[in-house]
Design a protein around this nucleic acid. Structure first.
Lengths: 215, 215
DNA sequence: CTCTTTATGTGCCGAATTGAACAGACTTGA
DNA sequence: TCAAGTCTGTTCAATTCGGCACATAAAGAG
């Protein structure tokens, strides 16, 4: 018998309520959930799958600002009266999301204790995570950040898949790390030569890659 | 007669309640508010002054992850059961902060509607800001980021001071931007030669600096 | 199967950046 | 007033990085 942690119970309970309050939407791999600049009226919650948020800058360069998995919210800024999406959301794998109208969500955050504590806890968590990523950008080399991005994606997959990650192309990796594809290619090959990763179609990340990420 | 915006009224009301619930603490310029790794039991709210959050990495490099002014909260992670401070908080100018024990704060977030809406709104705002900074790191050059950091600090000062900023040294600017002091020095001189800034003791940022920041 | 498209492997060169050193200006405190 | 400490200005070689071009490989469409 499996013992659930408090957070899981909370998540499960909140999940049920959210499902009732919102609409279920399925998105195929590579499907666009919404586009930067489009009107934003809802908060999203990932039930299954992986979602990527990207921002395109004035100078046309694109950056991946988050990779999110089941249990994460996104498009929260609309709760703060942002009328337009600040980023583009794309499904990396086949994904199920719950879409909750922002006024419905706002009401629940006041009235439904379980939802509100779950939501704010996740928000704090992603804030902490984001600070960490930001710090990482400031102090690490692009090789280290690439290593960390690969490890992060590996963690995102259930253990029985032993870190066989449906591959994200090198262009996107570059946009996650803040460098160019040629640089990513260079590092990927170096990692491979050192036996830290292997790939063909799927990516296999070895634990030893951590030694690169950690300084 | 001055018309207050909704947010200001909310802030004023929340400020009063927070002041009652917490302890006032004054910190001189350059004073350390808390240190990374020290036990974290309270949430902080800035009443007056400017506070900088820094993180020191394994590789000993330091990064400034936030510059906060009056009306901002910090050390929120402790609400998520982080027992230790994830960053070091330092006052840049003479500062007054309200210190609120985390369980007191947690209770207020449930019972005091005005506090909770104010707090969560600020949290969302700083999350959005942080995403923006993160995105900026990914797509901009260090020259652009330095320009933006200077503009940001200038905005932080009341208009009647016409952007005369008590100077932050170049080492710290480097840690804000994620580069080296020599690079900051190089750019500062370039900005000066172009007439975009001027300084001696205090920094004067001209509006034209925006042209550098924007692409 | 062939054509098209998309992604990866490589190499190269100029530009940007690091990291370190050192001199001068200024501040502070004994 | 002298010494120590801090900050800025400046230089420079070594390294890292961006941007480009092109070959190859793989996948998908017709």
């Amino acid at each position: 018998m499996h013992k659930m942690r408090a957070i899981d119970i909370q998540a499960a309970s909140a999940n049920g309520i959210l499902e009732e309050a919102g609409t279920l939407r399925r998105v195929a791999a590579d499907g666009i959930i919404y586009t930067q600049g489009a009107p934003a009226q809802s908060v999203f919650f990932i039930q299954k799958g992986i979602v990527m948020l990207t921002v395109r800058a004035r100078n046309r360069r694109r950056a991946v600002i988050a990779i999110l998995s089941a249990g994460s919210f996104f498009s929260e800024p609309c709760l703060n009266d942002h009328r337009k999406h600040l980023s583009t959301a794309t499904a990396i794998t086949a994904t199920s999301i719950i879409v909750i109208k922002k006024n419905v969500m706002a009401r629940m955050l006041v009235k439904e204790a379980s939802v509100s504590s779950f939501f704010w806890t996740s928000l704090l968590t992603s804030m902490i995570q984001l600070r960490d990523d930001f710090h990482d950008m400031l102090v690490s080399t692009s090789e280290q950040r690439l290593a960390r991005a690969l490890l992060h994606m590996a963690q995102m997959h259930p253990p029985h898949q032993v870190a066989h990650i449906p591959i994200v192309n090198q262009q996107i990796l570059a946009e996650m790390v803040g460098t160019t594809r040629s640089r990513v290619n260079f590092f990927m090959n170096r990692f491979r030569k050192r036996g830290l990763i292997s790939y063909n179609g799927y990516l296999h990340v070895k634990n030893a890659l951590k030694t690169v990420a950690l300084r």
